[in-house]
Design a protein around this nucleic acid. Structure first.
Lengths: 345, 345
DNA sequence: CTGTTAGCGCATTCAT
DNA sequence: ATGAATGCGCTAACAG
């Protein structure tokens, strides 16, 4: 279904000028006599001429396209970030290739290869292999090769032994503030729900969770740390397990807002009211967090700035400018109603 | 930052063969002697050679890229659809360009132009101008021109006077089933919340809503139809207005699940329990619908099939095959707990 | 089986 | 101010 598209040659012929002249009016790279300019422009309009960006890219060796490798666009976290980033990229004249790897390493590799073949100028990478504590070494090598061909920026990610550019939210500070909020509310038994060990977005948080509790002389018990996953269902599952622990915490930190939602639902099912009977806090501040009863207290990752900065860094690299190796974006505590003062039962 | 990428010429030189031979091993388009094959392959591996897809596209006049024009990827509806579609497209060897128009006509036009310049093989269009009852005529003309250059498939959309390919969910049937469910539960006063008049995803539903109520000899009152928007906030707003109506409906149909969520929240705030005091149903079955208390009864648009079919139709057109002008995907009623039997107060 | 040639659409020298 | 020639990386057609 290839309708023959019209080229600068067609325009040139009809205008009785050379292709170079048409090219010149197209790019404005050199002066053209006003009347020829007018003539050419008119003919271009007449045919709704559009230059072939592929040909141009071939010549310039830059495609003005950037690749987004994420795990799953249906997660609010990713979609918000992609939206912000894409918007910012467009403003700088770049288009976006979307790749949902669905957390599948093979898939990621396949996508990465496609992106390279399509000659993207740079890649934004979030989640997946840049979010695991033990990465398959071959994936690291692959990343190295890729970074050797085109700039890559990791968002909220990290790969052991990989010298990469990173832009990330200050998750550690976020967790710390959450814990301190809970402690200040008088809670002494505080649990951690959700996540999967081996995924940094859980392990990093648990680390800070333990540290902060220790600082405040609060007890840390392994049975209060329940991994399960990152979905609403995981939250339900983790909450259910917590309910069976003998000395139940009066507050829980969830690895993200989905898990918090699942936990709240499961607690409700067993007659526990949030926050009256148990406090729950989440992470990410996904759009629904504000509206999910009773309103989830959580940490906003500041998507706008996160996405924009990542794009800026990437474009700086693409265009040969200097850039900081690591940029940390501050987070924001979103106080709502799912966390409240401790009360005896 | 254009690191010189290696080409088939580099490979050819090092292997002491001609570029065509390299090309042949690349495409498998012709027999190559086993040992030359081996030699070339080794050198390609050594350099991690990847063919330049742009050059290839220029030649073949097809880019194996398709464009997605949507309004906002952060809306579950779009992201789910995009995910499913993208996945299916990848399986057929196509990559996806993402364009978030944010419901801005200008933006849409700009994106459309970029897509054309980038030589996408086809475009999937959802929302925006294909979702308005009164479209700016120039936008229609623009669409015509575009369809003249490359196949376009509208998802859940429609443009007056535009002869386009469409794949859509059977929203009418969905609304009908919702209304009948409510009526069967004994409700007699039924409202409609959310949407914006001028956007077909509201007006079409309201039309069916009225028809179905009429069929069942139920009253229809304009003051029970409250437009406001498509967001959670709009839902709250609409619900608030409804609370001030003298004879309040005992059940409401919401234009989508977001509005339903907003409505439920607002009703709760005023002490009305859902479904005990008022029944609420939504539309779309976004992922949270199942988990938002008390569980939202809604209509699933069958994203999987919707997305897949749209991609299939588009690729059929791209590859010169026949395709149905319009494909209607059945919807599914998701029975949950937000809608229940009518009870006197 | 393999090399040579030409061209996809465009922009950029270098002449004129 | 404009035209002719060249090449970006690749493949197909045509020799050999």
């Amino acid at each position: 279904m290839k309708k023959k598209s019209i080229t600068i040659y067609d325009i040139a012929k009809e205008a009785n000028v050379s292709p170079s002249t048409v090219s010149r009016v197209l790019t404005g790279s050199a002066k053209v006599r006003p009347d020829t300019l007018k003539k050419v422009t008119e003919i271009m309009d007449k045919y709704h001429f559009q230059p072939n960006a592929l040909a141009r890219s071939l010549l310039y060796k830059q495609s003005k396209m950037i690749g987004f490798v994420i795990t799953d666009i249906t997660h609010s976290f990713y979609s918000t970030l992609v939206l912000k980033s894409e918007k910012h990229a467009v403003q700088q004249g770049y288009s976006s290739f979307l790749c949902n790897s669905m957390n599948d390493g093979e898939m990621e590799s396949k996508y990465l290869q496609t992106l390279l073949e399509k000659q993207v100028d740079g890649i934004l990478f979030l989640g997946g292999r840049t979010n695991e504590t033990d990465v398959n070494p071959s994936y690291i090598k692959e990343m190295e090769q890729i970074m050797n061909r085109v700039p890559v920026v990791l968002i909220n990610g990290d790969m052991p032994g990989l010298d990469s550019y990173v832009v990330r939210a200050d998750e550690e500070e976020g967790v710390r503030r959450l814990i301190e909020l809970i402690v200040n509310h008088g809670h002494t038994k505080i649990g951690f729900l959700g996540g999967v060990s081996g995924i940094t977005s859980m392990t990093d948080k648990v680390k800070v969770y333990k540290e902060t509790l220790a600082q405040h002389k609060k007890e840390v018990r392994d049975e209060w740390i329940i991994d399960s996953g990152f979905t609403i269902e995981s939250g339900e599952e983790a909450a259910l397990k917590l309910l069976n622990v003998k000395e139940r915490p009066s507050a829980v930190v969830c690895v993200n807002d989905f898990v918090a939602i699942g936990a709240i639902n499961m607690f409700s099912k067993f007659g526990l009211r949030v926050p009256d009977d148990i406090s729950v806090v989440g992470f990410d501040d996904i759009p629904i967090a504000k509206h999910f009863p009773p309103g989830i207290t959580t940490i906003s990752q500041n998507y706008d700035e996160l996405g924009q900065t990542a794009v800026d860094v990437l474009i700086d690299l693409i265009e040969g400018r200097e850039a900081k190796k690591e940029t940390v974006i501050p987070t924001k505590l979103m106080l709502r109603n799912s966390c409240w003062k401790y009360r005896e039962n």
